[in-house]
Amino acid sequence: MLKKQYLPKEKIISILNEYNIGVIKKIEPLATSGNISYIVLTDTDEYFLRISPDGIRWRSRGEIEAELELISFLSEKGIPVINAELQKNKETVIELDNKFGYLRKYNRGEEILSPDTKHLKKFGRILGKYHKAIEGYRTKNHRKHTWDLEETKKNFKQNKEIILKSSFSKKEEFIEKFEKEIFPLNFPKNLPLGTIHEDLGKRHVIWRKDSIIGIIDFDRCYFGKIILDLGQALRGWCFIDDWSNWSNKNFKAILEEYQKEKKLNGLEKEYLIDAVKFAVLERGLSFCLRFILVTQDPEDGDYAMNSVSENGFLNIIEKNRDKIEQIIKAA
């Protein structure tokens, strides 16, 4: 599901020459889920170059500026993030052939894909701190791309025919089950809002010696309901055993520590399970369209189908509903 994308070397060099970063020693492409990314080694430091590609992952200059606004705001609030480097002309946003991006220091650390309780608690605490900081915060620049419930319903309606005409092997079953689950969902307008990350899975939290040193990849950030960000994070951290089981232990550890930084109100508690279910559905649709329009990778298609299949992710959540509700009530 991760792949490397490339720019001509001379164009990369032209971008890097706009910075005071020393002598370039090595430029290495980095596999990602969509952006054009490189690790750049110079005689002074390591850097991460990210450019939004054409197609569904394209972002405007304003959207990149909004992303960098959020990162700067979080840095001021003590959240471990890395600000973009300034170019010689004092700009932060890179423009190349109507593609936009930025350069930052590279966070040399590790992802922890099998976290223990200690890691889960630390993640829950930093997530609560993040959500407390961004409640009510909105960037001055606008993020056109959003992944909230209404946009997901709209996205599904617009792409339904594309799915039906595609080579996705179980397209009729996917559409039937997706429609059945997504359209009854609703979230009250008075749930707390903020500029959320939207993709705080394990790959986007960087560790060193059991400490979180970086939250990365704000490519999907937007102003929306904070509970949806929590639901998306719990989806990523509580499904275990290669997505075949749900861990109430993980859920409890994260939620208890989260509450020490930001207390969920009664309405947020009421809609938290729906937020996790929505996270599953949104990613299911995203992977379905990614399979059809971009990758043709069977793993993407399988993930999409497992999101809604009879014994898939939603079913696993429902089997654990009673215990999840007990944990939420006690938190």
Rank of each mutant, 00 (worst) to 15 (best):
G194N: 10
E28G: 11
I273R: 04
N83C: 07
C288M: 11
D241F: 00
L193P: 13
F156M: 04
A31M: 15
I182E: 01
E310R: 09
S169T: 14
N35I: 13
N98E: 15
F178V: 07
S309C: 13
E172N: 11
D302N: 15
G224L: 12
F174K: 04
N190S: 08
E111D: 10
T32G: 06
F156D: 01
D241A: 04
L30E: 12
A331F: 14
K26H: 09
L185P: 04
K260C: 06
P80L: 07
R321Q: 09
D241G: 02
E69P: 02
I36W: 00
I134V: 10
I126W: 03
I212H: 06
N20I: 12
I273K: 02
W58T: 01
E65M: 05
D116S: 11
Y222T: 04
T32A: 08
R290Q: 14
E282I: 08
Y137H: 05
V81P: 04
W246S: 02
I36L: 03
Y130T: 01
S247N: 05
G128H: 00
D219P: 07
L255S: 06
G78A: 09
F48I: 06
K122V: 05
E176K: 14
K269Y: 06
E69M: 05
F48N: 08
I94Y: 00
S307C: 14
S169K: 15
F287L: 11
L272H: 05
L234D: 00
V81R: 01
C288A: 15
S37W: 03
K132E: 09
S75F: 15
F156I: 14
D116W: 14
I216Y: 03
T139G: 01
D322L: 14
K177C: 07
I13P: 14
I212V: 10
L267K: 03
I39M: 15
L228T: 02
E76W: 11
Y222Q: 06
G231Q: 10
A275C: 10
S37C: 15
N311V: 09
G224I: 08
I182M: 02
E91I: 12
P29L: 05
N141R: 10
T92F: 12
P298T: 06
I227Y: 08
P80H: 07
Y38C: 03
L293T: 06
F218W: 00
F287M: 10
C221F: 00
V81L: 05
K189Q: 13
L2Y: 13
E325Y: 08
K26S: 05
V294S: 08
G194C: 13
E282W: 11
K3N: 12
N20Q: 13
H145W: 08
F223C: 01
K26R: 13
I182S: 00
D217L: 04
F223E: 03
R59S: 02
S309M: 10
E318M: 08
I162S: 09
D274Q: 13
D97N: 08
F156N: 00
L191S: 10
L127E: 01
E150S: 04
F313I: 04
F278Y: 12
G55F: 02
K3W: 13
K180V: 02
L127H: 05
I56N: 10
Y19N: 05
E325M: 11
L86C: 12
Q158L: 12
D229E: 06
